[in-house]
Amino acid sequence: MSTKKERIDRLADAGRVSREEGISLYQSAWLRLRRDVVFLIGATIIVLFVILAAIAPWIAPHDPQAALLIDQVRPQTNPVPGPQDGFPLGADYAGRDLFSRLIVGAQQTLIVGVLATFGGLVGGLTLGTLAGGVGGWADAVVMRIVDVMLSIPSLLMAFSIAAVFANPSQWTVILAIAIVQVPIFARLLRGSMLAQRHSDHVLAARALGVRRPAIVFRHMLPNSLGPVIVQATLVLATAIIDAAALSFLGLGNPDDRQPEWGQMLGKAQDFFNSFPHLAFYPAVCIIVVALGFTLMGESLREALDPKSRR
């Protein structure tokens, strides 16, 4: 119906079993990825990001939650303390060290991205397996709902879902972003399973008398995972950007003790015209990480696409 859907379907198609001799789809993909500059740049960014998130509390010079420079904050004249000794980027409006908050912010940003993607993945896997594996009525009903959800602009849907909660928190942000991803993963998985339904290995399994659940989970699902991984990598990027947009609209987590880049960027809007650096640093972090995931996802997609293999 739409290119959004076509794109999903094309990706679903890419996971079909390779017919190349002696080498699996994943092996051949890996051989290509190893030499792919785009993939290597993306992967390097992501590895550094994950390491940063893991060791952040130990390398941050200050406690990101401590209002160390609060006595320099003058709400009327100088709401944001500038850079100084021991505080290379200065502090935020609550006198907390900006540099430390950026470093520790990697943690929450990673958590939001991963959990939102994971939630969308689990929901989409359930619906997609139901539709693609069972077929018939389940397929028709699930796909109609999925298609309508896909026809609502996704960011708009995330805003609407986030607005349902009276007390927004990190969890409602994650949930809103995750739900938006469910129909995408569901359609992807269903398409990929339908493509396999009449393939030889499923036919062989059926002829051997393997029962349906076993066919679905052991023979069809593993073969569908390639496109799902590609999509998940791309979703990680949008999840982090969307979290920032939610925060910008006041639909994000209001509790900012634990720093998160999207929230830091969203909350910096009040100071943008006089203190743009407050938004600039978290924005650059988000852009670099989102770019890393996008580069990785796009090169994975190309590597897994049988059409582009040479």
């Binding site: 990027a237 950007i241 015209n273 743009p276 924005a283 852009i287 996008t294």
Partner: peptide, 18 residues
């Protein structure tokens, strides 16, 4: 174009406005 997608729209708007 990949960078363009990675930049949050409202941040780009702020930068242009600034």
């Amino acid at each position: 174009s990949l960078v363009g997608v990675a930049v949050p729209v409202f941040f780009l708007a702020f930068v242009l406005k600034y």
